[in-house]
């Protein structure tokens, strides 16, 4: 009898352990301090304090925020290798993500991001606003802006800057609600992107 009760209690304790909120540790990224990001050699020097979120969307992906990912999302993609998607696939069969390929061109990167968002964020509307050449990481790169409406009914604006170096994709994207949040921080983001080196 006691053994049964002990088993039941153990079950309850185990269930409770699973429910305990995981210990998160978001880290401070201090103004003026150069740091490497996304488990890569990509480094940036922020012009203001940021928070690095503890969760990771992929092996070489890292997200920073000021007020939470839903309000400002600065994501670094540090050297995505050919054959891999931008972020980790949740379901390889049910929801496959487009892959970065050896033959992917700079002008095709907006499409890669769009395809990734459509599946990963499950969104219906995505509009590419502009695509322009830019120097990034000392190479010819691309910068593009876009807008999409998320599941939470908020229209977000985004701006991404990318370059392909030694066959790997390096990209920094910033997404925020078009109301207030995007305009408030985009200048800081552009200044940060300009400090990026490998």
């Amino acid at each position: 009898m006691n053994r049964i009760n002990a088993g039941v209690m153990l079950l309850a304790l185990l269930a409770m352990a699973f429910q305990a909120p995981l210990a998160h540790a978001h880290n401070l990224r201090k103004k003026g301090e150069t740091v490497t990001v996304a488990d890569s050699t990509l480094s940036v020097t922020p012009g203001r304090d940021w928070n690095r979120l503890s969760g990771k969307a992929g092996k070489n992906v890292e997200t920073w925020t000021l007020d939470g990912g839903q309000l400002n999302d600065l994501t670094f993609f540090g050297g995505i290798v050919p054959g891999k998607p931008l972020v980790k696939e949740r379901h390889k069969k049910k929801a496959p993500l487009p892959k970065f390929r050896k033959v992917t061109l700079l002008v095709e990167l907006p499409e890669l991001l769009e395809g990734t968002y459509r599946t990963y964020k499950n969104i219906g509307t995505f509009r590419l606003i502009s695509t322009n050449p830019i120097k990034f990481l000392g190479q010819d790169g691309v910068t593009f802006t876009y807008e999409y409406t998320d599941q939470d009914q908020i229209t977000r604006k985004g701006e991404a800057t990318a370059a392909i170096v030694a066959g790997k994709l390096y990209m920094v994207s910033f997404d925020a609600p078009r109301l207030h949040y995007f305009e408030r921080t985009i200048a800081d983001v552009r200044a940060l992107v300009a400090t990026a080196t490998l």
Partner: peptide, 17 residues
Amino acid sequence: QAVIEYQFFRGNRLPTK
């Protein structure tokens, strides 16, 4: 939601907050 997630929930506060 961001306030609940990153400010009310003490264990998950953003360092800047």
